[in-house]
Amino acid sequence: MRLRAKPSKGWVLGGLCLLSAALMVLPGSRWLARAARPVLVPLSALGMNVPVSVWTRMDEIAGRDRARPDRRVAELRRLLLAQQEVIDRQRRRMEVLSGWRSKLKGFKCRLIEASVIGAEAVPLQDRRLLDAGSSRKVAPGDLVTTRRLVHERDIALPEGLLVLGRNYLVGRVVDCAAFSATLQLVTDRSFEMPALLWRLVGPGQQRTIYTQGPNGARRKVVVRHDGRGPAMHAVGEPILVKAQGNGRWVVLRDVPAEYGVRRGDLLTSAGSLQFIPFGLRIGQVVRTERSKREPHFVTVYVEPFADLGRLSDVYIIQPVSP
């Protein structure tokens, strides 16, 4: 019997089919993709220079900044900055009074600068490839915060990492290789996180909210803007919601209609969670839709503040144990 020195193409094909089938069923087969990343990452980073240059050039021609040229967003940003200053001032005073300052000094966070070096090959998932990985101690499943927050606030971040684009929450790390990580955007269909919805009122506006009275009964309150400045105020307690991506928007399902959520309201990460510091802006309500099944509930659609389609620089925050 004559032995073949070289396997035929049919045998090779059969072997490859078995390999694919094994990869499909074996848990943890993603390591192969992670192993291939060191080849792909530098090349993708080179390729990414093309769209970034195109966007920059287009912005130069259009004579605009990369930030969203939305007046209301700018106004909202001014409001939030003003609010943040007030909060910071109050917090500093409290810290001095209570001696918390010395305790907070023990907490440290490391800011990891990362760039988006590509998208996934198939646009059916809203994910991006980052050029920072486990070699820089980035870990999957962790949290997202802004550079501003980390620089200006002395808040400790427990275990977990966050990824940010400019000052907005853009997503979280879901997969991590040695030199790269996969960023899941807030609009990805599998994205899900608790969040807070803030009802806002602008100058000259009023809105009706329901609050809990001292005896536990609900009462109707009409809140007006104080007129002290052009910025919008948050009114009432924020609403705890579950934010989910739907490919285009961040969607908040089954929000009680009595909250009267309306266009322009603000979505932030949930401050009640231990690992997400308060105040990370995600986006702004663009529309609400009454639920067909349950008329007492609405579905709220939120447009992310960050321009996710042109995301190029993000910051991964790594908490460092004191």
Partner: peptide, 30 residues
């Protein structure tokens, strides 16, 4: 040949598999 078409297809699909995250590794190549 058909086998070559299949091999080329598998290679391209495997390249897609390598760039994706999440479950389903190996499916694109098949």
């Amino acid at each position: 040949s058909r086998v070559e078409a299949a091999l080329a297809g598998w290679t391209l699909g495997f390249a897609i598999d390598l760039t994706l995250s999440g479950p389903g590794m190996g499916l694109a190549s098949l």
